[in-house]
């Protein structure tokens, strides 16, 4: 029995670890489908996190009685707003001003990580608050509320119902994005923009509009990953750099999932599991970094195999990384 319990616990923790990755990779897939390689996603995830934390911080400090609904909605909305603004910076620079996508993305990551760590580390000092450290325990409690009957269902309940709502939200969003890309007119046109902007343009599709929407909505989804990490996974406690390289891991999962959000659910949980596997298998702690290296190595292998097999459906969007400019006659 002990082994089964351990496996269940591993899966549960893998899912929790995988959730921020799932938000991030889903957001990045949506963005990349429009041809924009947003390397600012790691930064946006920090911004999404800190924006939510700031919203929650002010709410928690403004009232003595925290109402659950508001505790959820206020950080959620402020996180979305923060990510949206960050995505707009990227969008404005690359789509309207046609700046190099790699450079813009990396600058945004520098900016975003800095912003997160700065406010995370200084919020208390700036606001002259009397709390000793940045801990949003009441807000976090709202985020960590599980279904009431989860504990009565044994292993089954533990596996499927023991999470805060954002775990489910991540899955729902991933499936929704998958559905939109595959089965709707908007998805078709977005994919056309990413594959061949000139063709899409010729067909009367507003290329820039699609790029903006995909980048902004994608960024907002990714930002939720940061929010989940702080308010649910870390129990509302901010620690600088705690989020680590998860943003880059999310970009790796995009490749691993060959640009399909539904596969990215699996990929995120798998990579999440690799992050914590060392707790469950009896290997020396020394091997931990090698295990954490595994996701990246696997990603590289996927990237290589995909490019060697040349199966067209699995390639990156054909216009990825390039800006579209219609030469006026």
């Amino acid at each position: 029995m002990a082994i089964i319990e351990q496996i269940v616990e591993l899966i549960v923790r893998a899912i929790m670890q995988g959730t921020p990755l799932l938000f991030g990779s889903t957001g990045e897939i949506l963005t990349e489908k429009s041809g924009n390689l947003n390397l600012g996603i790691p930064g946006i995830m920090y911004i999404g996190a800190i924006s939510g934390v700031i919203g929650g911080f002010f709410y928690q400090n403004s009232t003595s009685k925290v109402i659950t609904v508001l505790a959820i909605i206020i950080p959620l909305l402020s996180s979305l707003a923060g990510s949206l603004l960050a995505s707009l910076i990227y969008g404005f620079l690359t789509i309207t001003l046609r700046a190099n996508q790699n450079v813009t993305g990396l600058a945004l990551t520098t900016f975003g990580v800095g912003l997160g760590n700065f406010f995370g580390g200084s919020l208390i000092k700036i606001t002259n608050s009397d709390t000793p450290f940045l801990a949003l325990s009441k807000i976090s409690a709202a985020y960590r509320t599980t279904l009431p009957f989860a504990n009565n269902l044994g292993i089954f309940g533990q596996l499927f119902f023991s999470y805060g709502f954002m775990v489910y939200l991540a899955v729902v969003i991933a499936l929704a994005v998958s559905f939109i890309l595959k089965r709707t007119r908007i998805g078709l046109q977005l994919r056309a923009v990413g594959e061949s902007p000139a063709t899409a343009d010729a067909a009367g599709i507003n290329v820039n509009k699609y790029k903006y929407f995909a980048t902004c909505i994608g960024g907002m989804i990714a930002g939720l990953g940061g929010l989940y990490y702080i308010l649910d996974y870390s129990k509302g406690i901010w620690a600088n750099d705690a989020f680590g390289d998860r943003g880059w891991l999310a970009i790796a999962i995009v490749i691993f999932a060959i640009w399909r959000p539904n596969i990215s659910i699996l990929g995120s949980y798998l990579f999440g599991g690799l992050y914590i596997l060392f707790n469950y298998v009896s290997v020396s702690m020394n091997l931990l970094p090698l295990m954490q290296m595994l996701p990246y190595v696997v990603t590289i292998i996927v990237l290589v195999i995909v490019s060697m097999r040349k199966k067209r459906e699995n390639q990156p969007p054909a216009s990825l990384g390039t800006n579209y400019f219609r030469e006026e006659r």
Binding site: R191, A192, E195, T199, A203, R312, A318
Partner: peptide, 12 residues
């Protein structure tokens, strides 16, 4: 669009 089917291209 190379990656699309005939129909998808036609209705694009």
């Amino acid at each position: 669009v190379d990656l699309f089917t005939a129909t998808e291209n036609i209705i694009l």
